[in-house]
């Protein structure tokens, strides 16, 4: 937050009446209440035997969490599934970081033919509805033997996010003064070493934002998993939760909420400890 902004807000606050302030807060609270209530219900319900009037826990129990230690009909082992989800999230983050930091560097620091067009293409791809080309993607994955494999989903998910990530990280590269690179060159570094030893450490904040967001992007992936994964060996928590939802919707909220709370654990951690990043991650939220 810049000094000017701070001044502005203070200025507005001093001059607006109390009634105005109360109205704004009241409006925000009312508008946001479905979100607060829904998430509160999710957590409370997962630890309670039932809900009186739908919202007041009737008693503490851990039996909703039985999926962690016993077999639930129709669902595979949750630890195995969670491990897969971890792999998916981590790999998507890894692939996106690698590819976007390389291409962002090339687009920011080199002048070459077709650069402008490529930048525009990336912008366009970012908005392009690839999910509507699922039939053709199925064909491509079949040709490359990437169906029913996490690798296929990792590459797909990463490809969907790379245009965005490249743009973001290019912005970070652009913000580094050329002089720093020249200094590196004078020290006798090659361009690649300059990139690795000088530039990458400087764009670290951007890389962290991308890593966090891409981990969550892979962690949450649903459509590609449910369409291109056939055996439960490669299930992730999205398919696990979706399957539970199919069998127990309206029937066993206890089990469903417990599974959900388990699934959104990384989101919760992020929400509590890295509040600041969340706002930055709105960058990532651009993919609607």
């Amino acid at each position: 937050m810049t000094k000017g902004e701070y001044y502005k807000i203070g200025f507005l606050q001093r001059n607006s009446s109390k009634i105005f302030n109360v109205t704004v807060y009241a409006l925000l609270i009312v508008l946001s209440s479905p979100i607060v209530l829904a998430y509160a219900w999710l957590f409370l319900r997962s630890f309670s035997t039932g809900m009186a009037h739908g919202f007041i826990p009737t008693g503490l129990t851990f039996s909703n969490w039985r999926f962690m230690w016993e077999q639930i009909s129709g669902l595979p082992n949750v630890w195995h599934v969670t491990f897969n989800t971890f792999i998916l999230g981590g790999s998507v983050a890894g692939v996106v970081l690698l590819v976007s930091s390389m291409s962002g560097f090339a687009l920011s620091r080199f002048a070459f033919k077709g650069q402008g067009k490529l930048l525009l293409l990336l912008l366009m791809l970012h908005a392009f509805p690839t999910v509507s080309l699922m039939v053709a993607i199925f064909y491509i994955l079949r040709m490359t033997h990437l169906l029913n494999s996490l690798l296929g989903v990792i590459l797909l998910r990463a490809s969907m996010d790379i245009p965005w990530a490249t743009w973001i990280i290019k912005g970070f590269y652009d913000g580094i003064p050329r002089e720093i690179e020249w200094a590196g060159a004078i020290d006798g570094y090659s361009r690649i070493s300059i990139w690795r030893k000088v530039l990458l450490p400087m764009v670290k904040p951007g890389l962290i934002v991308i890593a966090v967001f891409e981990f969550l992007s892979g962690w949450s992936e649903f459509i590609f998993i449910t369409t291109f994964i056939f055996s439960n060996k490669w299930w992730t928590l999205s398919q696990y939760t979706y399957t539970a939802l199919g069998g127990y919707r309206f029937a066993d909220y206890g089990l469903l909420t417990a599974i959900s709370v388990w699934y959104i654990l990384p989101v919760t951690i992020l929400f509590i400890f890295a509040n600041k990043y969340m706002t930055q991650m709105s960058l990532g939220g651009i993919k609607g």
Partner: peptide, 30 residues
């Protein structure tokens, strides 16, 4: 229009649905 701290808090709150996995978010609306 309010302090940046609380404004930021409400914005973060509204980001929550976006970063929640879609199947869990679907359950909330069910």
């Amino acid at each position: 229009s309010i302090s940046d701290r609380w404004g930021g808090f409400f914005r973060t709150l509204w980001m929550l649905p976006r970063i929640t996995p879609s199947v869990v978010y679907g359950l909330l609306w069910l």
